[in-house]
Write a protein that binds this DNA or RNA. Sequence first.
RNA 1: GGGGCGGUAGCUCAGCCGGUCAGAGCAUCGGACUCAUAAUCCGUGGGUCGUGGGUUCAAGUCCCACCCGCCCUACCA
Length: 530
Amino acid sequence: MAATGSNASEESAFYVSTPIYYVNDAPHLGHAYTTVAGDVLTRWHRQRGEKVWYLTGTDEHGQKIMRTAETNGVSPQEWCDKLVQDAWKPLWEHLEIANDDFIRTTEPRHTERVQEFVQDLYDKGEIYRGGYKGPYCVGCEEYKAPGDLLDGDLCPIHKRPVEWLEEENYFFRLSAYGPRLLEFYEQNPGFIQPASARNEVLQFVRQGLQDLSISRSTFDWGIPIPWDSKHVIYVWVDALLNYVSAVGYGSDQAKFDSTWPADVHLVGKDILRFHAVIWPAMLMANGLPLPGRVFANGWLMVGGEKMSKSNLTGISPRQLTEHFGVDAYRYYFLRAIPFGQDGSFSWEDFSARYTSELANDFGNLASRVAAMVGKYYDGTLPEATDAGAAEQAVAEGLARAVAQADTMIGDNLDFAGGIGAIFDFTRQVNGYLSEQAPWKVAKDESPEGRARLGTILYTAAESLRAVAVLLNPIMPGTAEKLWASLGAEPHLGPLAEQRIADAGTWGRLPAGADVVKGEILFPRLEEVKS
RNA sequence: GGGGCGGUAGCUCAGCCGGUCAGAGCAUCGGACUCAUAAUCCGUGGGUCGUGGGUUCAAGUCCCACCCGCCCUACCA
């Protein structure tokens, strides 16, 4: 984790959150998928020159964690501490996640704010004491909706009779917010994305909402209800509040004002409802601004089965990065799967894209350009003194790629489309080189020949300069290598300071730059293992 | 039970309001080239557009039924 955020200021930050992950177990591909997406999004906005805040963290309360800890013979806190330190934070560092903060729901800075928030709602009459009575399935450990039961009051999952239980709880008046939520969705059509997710939520809310039980008294691993410590706060109410507690709510008003509301909440589609219904209602109830949008990404499917809590048998992130490298890992899932949809992942597909797109199209392009500048100009970038229509076409292709990538990635969260636009451009440059055949022009030692050769190689190198900037949010390690290979830093400054808005401006890399053929960006993969 | 989504070339998928929509990328095969990571560039896709009906001058593109897969249907993160 690199603390890249600046201090709070008047400027409002582009604030992105991941879900806070439940630390019942080690992080898997699904967690990493969402976190990498958020990292690319926030790096992109930083590269635009915006102030950014990227938050991730862990959700550490709840019955399931309590039991897992018991099973392992440690306290819940010890269990969480160990996982966070040994598994979660190290993975994010490994994946080059540049989050600005990492919040844990067991930290006092969170628990105190949660208690205050809930107390506020209680004082306002948004929370009341009530009883809950309903059919409870012991196997599921949860109440079922009466309509879910099979004939004979059987649990639809366990096919066993349910028990009717009654429990005293505190309830949040969620039912009162249905109309206001619908009005909000109507006025903010982009609030829930993608559209399929929005439709599901709309239909759900239109059915009418029931009040939400926000306390539990059957276990104690949670934040106590301030006015009735026999109850702990329902984990989702606890968890959702991390998005405000982490940015100064109730503790640092200036920071809060310059950060909240969040611009994007990234969520898995399984937890969409909590973020698109309960969370906005909670904020409304306490008079706080609502987030800009909630974007639900899909499931990663491995061999047709979803990667999820119940199926952790899949491939671990580290297995993939060991074979393909961290940058290729960051690239692959965003490139191969339209963000927001479910997507199938396979080792074979990863290998195919690595070889075709990363190694052959892109890595090899960088390699051949650097090699030719070295071979024909001793590594000193020549001037482009004879640019014509072919060069113009390349410059235009770049401008188009920059514009498309910026809109798609930065605004639409269409990572696959934006990355595609960048790589289409690299293909264009490969084609340009084939047409111009600088290795043939090099045999022409006339002044005209030399002018053409220099122009061609400059055009290719300048194209790569822009590609390095565009790929920096996605593959920072690789982009840095390319930046170094082009000798750009002495003239243009650090890669991270290059602006997206300037990336498409032609001619930024000056002649005279020291181009060196660095290490291979994407070495050919070892024999396939499975 | 109710609601929604998907089933298009070997693979992953584009195809909005019906009429060059039968496509792209990868893979395959053929050719060119040699600067480069045996890379690149060009050419090459006769696939019942899930099945069966229907509407229409004309249907992946609309309607109906059916088959297959997936998702949602409130308090498990």
